[in-house]
Amino acid sequence: MRAALRVFAAEGLKQHRRIFGSKLVVFSMLLWPVLTLATTYYTVLPVTEAPGAADRWPLVAQPGRLLAFLAAGALAYTFFFSLVQSAWHFSWERVSGTLEAMFLTPASRMALVLANGSSALVQNAWLFGCFGIAAAVATGTLHLAHPGMLAVAALALLVPAVAWGAFLNSLLMFSRDSAFLYTLLDDPLWFIAGVRLPLFALPVWITAIGLAFPLTTSLVVLRGALLDGKDVGDLAGQFAFLAGLSAVLLGLTALLLRVGERHAQRTGSLQLF
């Protein structure tokens, strides 16, 4: 455990140096999401003004709530996508040779991918996180059952995100064409996870696929807890599902790390897929 904590400290420094100093984080984690959010809002605005739209989706009666709904989506998506980006960078370590240096050490592989994911999340997402909360408070769209729900929402966002990050790290670490996976998880991710649309608007089969991605359920909890004043009891089902999904992702991560390193030891190639 102590050794694992030291791995977290080490990865924290590495991510800090990689991400924090660069201007990229301001663009990719604040400016682009905010501009994209505005574009999304205006794109769906015409249909929410259609006669009878409020009957189908009561939220659209108040443009402020529609914006908050989409902003929550943008926030969660930014968190989850930052992990896709970070995993993509991690896959570069194979090319640059540092992955081999990592595999030389006795450090726990699981600790490495978890540490990498969580420190990337912290480094990337704090900016948009602060912005989001400030915006929600300023516009008065925050609607909490009790203040503790803020922590609950954060937990429901962060824990599955870290599991997702660890899974992606282990997946992209051994993948030949990580650029392709990166592309695959960019736009399709927001589409199937209900980031820009309520889940009821999606066809059933898309919703079913979307449930395999923790972002989908995290978002339901986030919106319920922050915007609709739901409490833990209301969201118990979603919590259980998220916990299960996170456990499955971590299990898959452990499996991939094991199989991937075995494969590398057998074939001399760190590329599994």
Partner: peptide
């Protein structure tokens, strides 16, 4: 992206 010292510290942590 790390300094020389930070690189050694990083790997020192991984080696515990």
């Amino acid at each position: 992206r790390l300094t020389g010292r930070e690189n050694l510290w990083y790997f020192g942590q991984l080696y515990d």
